[in-house]
Design a protein around this nucleic acid. Structure first.
Length: 265
DNA sequence: CCCGATGTTCGATT
DNA sequence: AAATCGAACATCGG
């Protein structure tokens, strides 16, 4: 579920994790620590203090006084702070006991989880450029699109190129920029519009605390309301807001893709 | 009841 | 190299 705006919303909502100390970690299914076994993960984080909380792409970065803890929510992960453990523990997959309160991880589908890296550089190889980094410029985007010929939807979903975009926002951005999702990247000519719209859509969604379709929540069950602002995603069969033509849905890059055949060329 | 679909990513395969 | 497909898993709707 969560793409860049949802992850940013979660990051903002756990700001009070800063300066807390990790006293213990418990998990309830084995695959939740991705790159270490449970015991090594525990050994690396217990007793550490949280220095800062950030984000790169869809990864939540929690810097400790030694090392970096990373969380990825995948499809249905929920990370939030709470004074006590929840009454409903059905989907609770892990929790961290802090010197004050708990950091709780719920996940219906159990795809998400945690990494620990002793150094930041061991994490960096996983992702490309985040749209809110300085490196994300119009020139960089132009070069990236024209240096290869790839299906634009596929390229925008590629986290090693731009990190943070997912299925909803790619559809929204391509609709807004009037680009057909199957267009080859080197044939896109309105790249400066595309560049602006990437930032525009993400910024706007962050202001709305992201998109809740079904499962996305932050700060213990609050929901985002960007769903009401969506222009194409989930609007199959409904009239395009620009030209009234019927929005179609087609599998592109393995994902359900919504677009307007008439105004996206 | 069964099948398909769901916001993500990874690895195998074409 | 680029793109497709299935798998990881739980839940919901037709």
């Amino acid at each position: 579920m969560p793409e860049l705006p949802e992850v940013q919303t979660v990051v903002n909502s756990i700001a009070k994790l800063k300066d807390k100390k990790v006293l213990s970690f418990e998990s309830f299914h084995p695959k939740i620590t991705y790159n270490l076994d449970h015991d090594s993960f525990v050994n690396n984080i217990v007793g550490k203090n949280v220095i800062s909380i950030g984000r790169k792409g869809k990864y939540i970065l929690i810097s400790l006084n030694i090392g970096l803890m990373v969380c990825h929510l995948r499809m249905t992960g929920q990370l939030f702070l709470s004074d006590k453990l929840p009454d409903d523990k059905k989907h609770m997959r892990a929790f961290f006991k802090l010197n004050k309160g708990y950091l709780i991880y719920n996940d219906i589908r159990k795809f998400g989880g945690f990494y620990f890296f002793s150094k930041m550089k061991y994490f960096n190889y996983k992702v490309g450029v985040d749209p809110f980094e300085k490196k994300f410029t119009l020139d960089w985007l132009k070069k990236g699109l024209s240096s290869k010929s790839r299906i634009i939807k596929y390229l925008l979903l590629d986290q090693k190129f731009i990190c943070g975009l997912g299925n909803i926002y790619v559809d929204e951005i391509l609709w807004l920029t009037k680009i057909h999702p199957e267009k080859k990247s080197d044939k896109v000519k309105n790249t400066s519009q595309l560049f602006k719209n990437i930032i525009l859509v993400l910024d706007k969604s962050i202001k709305h605390h992201g998109t809740t379709i079904i499962n996305f929540t932050f700060d213990n069950m609050k929901t985002g309301d960007f769903r009401n602002e969506l222009k194409v995603y989930g609007r199959e069969g409904k009239p395009c807001f620009r030209c009234k033509s019927s929005i179609v849905r087609k599998k592109i890059a393995g994902r359900s893709t919504h677009f307007c055949k008439k105004c996206q060329k």
